[in-house]
Design a binder for these strands. Sequence first.
DNA 1: TTTTACTTTAGAATTATTATAAACTAGTTT
DNA 2: AAACTAGTTTATAATAATTCTAAAGTAAAA
Lengths: 135, 135
Amino acid sequence: MKKIDIFKKLRSSGLRPTKQRVEIAKFLFERDKTFHFTIESLDKFLAKKTTFKFALATIYNTVHAFKKAGHLSEVDVRGKKTYFDTNITNHHHFYDNETSELIDIDASEVVIQKIPKAPNGKKIKNIEVFINLKN
Amino acid sequence: MKKIDIFKKLRSSGLRPTKQRVEIAKFLFERDKTFHFTIESLDKFLAKKTTFKFALATIYNTVHAFKKAGHLSEVDVRGKKTYFDTNITNHHHFYDNETSELIDIDASEVVIQKIPKAPNGKKIKNIEVFINLKN
DNA sequence: TTTTACTTTAGAATTATTATAAACTAGTTT
DNA sequence: AAACTAGTTTATAATAATTCTAAAGTAAAA
């Protein structure tokens, strides 16, 4: 993804392309594979990669802005920290408890044959399959 | 579940049947349906139901002791609070985002036809299906 | 009944996250 | 290009959930 695309992505989401947002967006979206992270890990990655500093609050703000704009999704993982995912398509996850690592599973790789119907008055919003791994 | 069973349950898990643990165990396990709760909600329920006080730390300790002993399971729910479940069988959940409520789905009600194989060196520990609900 | 090891408790500490308010900056207007 | 305006970053404070700590209490063993 080119710089100009980053700018477009931000603009189209009503986000001003500030120095920090561009840097975070480049780090998150200029890659081939999907990327999973927590705010803490993102902060560390950015500290290594770039010269200028990011306030933690800025990282929180920016990541949530991206999430709100639909550029990131949030993943349900047991634990205290919130995990984010650059893969915003409908998909599932492996979770490796030993390494606390998430691995994407393409939606086509999981076929569900039978599912209960939603309780009265409710509809199914989405189905998440979470496969816990062990060694 | 009778009081004597509660005692046995605690004993067999290496837990001394103290006043607090017995009271919490009775509240959690003397019921027909499975029960979902957070520490905060359990604290409120106990405050209503019983006369003596429970330190929050005791509730945390006791719930974690029950979990460690296999009497409770923890549920992956996005958000800050940790959810627990008195249903320790292999099963799935509906999650109602409007009410923050969990509803059990029996394992037999979900049939998965296709699943990817675990990454090299890893094995599948368990599969959790999480169905998000909307109105 | 004395002892010992485990528990409870209140409060402090920690961790993740969100709020705040001042300083700053991008984009627009002049 | 200078001035303006609205959105942004920052450091720090506040909040929320959870864990830690050390003293006081209690169950079970001796």
